[in-house]
Computed example of a mutant assay.
Amino acid sequence: MKKEIMEWLVAIAVAVILIVVIRTFFFVSYTVDGLSMDPTFKDGDRVVVNKIMDNFQDYEYEDVIVFDSEMGPAYVKRVIGAPGDTVEMEDKQVYLNGEALEEDYVVHTEDSYMDNFTLEDLGVEGDVIPEDHYLVLGDNRPISRDGRDFGLIHEDSIVGEVSLRFWPLNEIAFNFD
């Protein structure tokens, strides 16, 4: 009987250690809070964030990431500009390095805020995103709190890239670019 109890305790301890290691170094789940990424993600969607790739690649245009916020819970947003890029918005059209972006995932309405901005308007010195910084925007631009509000984010605040939506079950998806 003692041997069986010890085996169970060891199995439980190994499972707990594996869960901690996986959540710390590999993958973590988040719940989308709000409508700022609609239609890509709805309020309450559950996603898995890949923390592994953070060590092996830089984030680029259209990557959907989760990052820690000084203003509360973590945010889910889309990378629009990476280090070395120039970004501006004019009449609801985003320009990356002088080229107009085709953003099929973006919600547009007549009542949007901050339809025009330059990097300088966001507090950037010069016209290029500095090293280790990213510009992120929500897909639901009329209501999204994003880089237009809080400026660029530092790469140290990035948790990882969203790899999977697993809830709701009828909307499981892997690619959000």
Rank of each mutant, 00 (worst) to 15 (best):
K2T: 11
K3R: 15
E4N: 13
M6L: 12
M6Y: 09
W8C: 07
L9F: 13
V10L: 14
A11V: 01
I12C: 14
I12Y: 07
A13V: 10
V14M: 11
I19E: 08
V21P: 02
R23C: 06
R23Y: 08
F25D: 03
F26W: 08
V28C: 04
S29N: 08
V32I: 15
D33K: 12
L35V: 04
S36K: 01
S36L: 03
M37A: 07
D38G: 00
P39E: 02
T40M: 03
T40D: 00
T40S: 05
F41M: 02
D43K: 15
D45P: 00
R46I: 08
R46A: 06
V47R: 00
V48A: 04
N50H: 01
N50K: 00
K51Y: 05
I52G: 01
I52C: 01
M53T: 14
M53G: 07
D54V: 08
D54K: 06
D54A: 02
N55P: 01
N55H: 13
F56T: 08
Y59F: 13
Y59P: 02
E60F: 04
E62A: 15
E62S: 14
E62P: 00
D63H: 08
I65D: 04
F67Y: 15
D68M: 12
S69H: 11
G72T: 03
A74S: 15
V76S: 04
V79R: 03
I80H: 05
I80E: 06
I80W: 07
G84V: 15
T86D: 10
V87H: 07
E88S: 09
E90I: 14
E90M: 08
E90T: 10
D91R: 06
K92T: 12
Q93C: 12
Q93A: 15
Q93G: 01
V94A: 12
Y95Q: 09
Y95W: 11
N97F: 10
G98K: 03
G98M: 13
G98I: 13
A100H: 04
L101H: 05
L101Y: 07
E103M: 12
D104M: 12
D104V: 13
E110Q: 10
E110V: 07
M114S: 06
F117Y: 15
G123M: 05
G123L: 04
V124K: 03
V124W: 02
V124D: 00
E125A: 15
E125F: 10
I129R: 03
E131S: 14
H133R: 11
Y134L: 06
L137H: 05
L137Q: 03
G138T: 04
G138N: 03
D139I: 14
R141S: 10
R141Q: 11
P142Q: 12
P142M: 14
P142N: 08
S144P: 05
R145T: 11
